[in-house]
């Protein structure tokens, strides 16, 4: 009895100590990020951590980084939608029609890995169907193998094209996030130029041209203007 009690006490103490010496999760994630590890879950967790510390701009940035690596990362998409729904500039984001939304969902669902596998499977199916077609008895009607080969070829070309586009967009992501609390969108790359709009932290921008200290950006509603480079962080930075 005494021995059992002692063991239980030791276990409780061990668990207590383990809890106490545990390093702060967020600090650990920041260190991993500094080491250059690219991982969608890591970026997602960093986004949550930044949001919990009140940095909505950085949170948005890291959710976007997670989605850049894996467009089908559902929790990142949910949290990004949530952060956007709470942002002051949420009205700037366009409302998509049902079918357009559906198309974007499908496009997001097909992340780079899924597209790569799909292209591989389609290549295999197209090869097999072509093999079937080539060795098909010429005395017979060739409609069925031709149809199947046509479908496989179409899907192969589609998946290969999507794979190429997605891969290019992943490495050339032009999205960026405003990290300054409030910023003025200027008509030219000059402090003295007139103001076009006032935007707030966390707004997702698309970067165009750049000058020495300025970036030309597009807002989600299409408005173009200039912002100081220090105000924004690019997703691929």
């Amino acid at each position: 009895m005494h021995r059992l009690g002692l063991i239980l006490c030791l276990l409780v103490c061990a668990f207590g100590l383990a809890a106490q010496i545990k390093e702060s999760e967020f600090d650990h994630l920041l260190k991993l990020d500094e080491r250059g590890i690219r991982n969608a879950d890591l970026y997602y967790n960093l986004g949550v951590g930044y949001w919990q510390t009140g940095q909505s701009g950085m949170a948005t940035l890291y959710f976007l980084r997670a989605l850049n690596l894996n467009s089908a990362h559902k929790p990142s998409q949910e949290n990004l939608d949530y952060v956007i729904s709470l942002s002051q500039d949420r009205e700037l984001y366009p409302q998509r029609l049902f079918l357009v939304s559906l198309a974007f969902r499908i496009y997001d669902f097909l992340n780079l890995e899924r597209l790569a596998i799909m292209a591989l499977v389609m290549l295999l199916l197209a090869s097999l169907s072509l093999h079937w077609l080539m060795h098909y008895d010429p005395e017979k009607e060739r409609g069925l193998p031709s149809l199947i080969f046509g479908i496989c070829l179409f899907l192969l070309i589609t998946s290969a094209l999507l794979l190429g586009v997605k891969s290019y967009r992943q490495t050339h992501n032009s999205k960026a996030v405003l990290i300054e609390n409030v910023a003025e969108l200027k008509t030219d790359a000059d402090d003295a130029s007139p103001r076009k709009a006032v935007i707030h932290e966390g707004l997702i921008l698309v970067v165009g041209d750049s000058s020495k200290e300025w970036l030309q950006v597009s807002l989600p509603d299409g408005t173009k203007g200039w912002l100081p480079k220090a105000y924004v962080i690019r997703v691929n930075e």
Binding site: Y44, N45, G49, W51, V83
Partner: peptide
Amino acid sequence: SAPRSLQPMIAR
């Protein structure tokens, strides 16, 4: 996945 609350961190 409509936003209703922030999803927590993923344990990894």
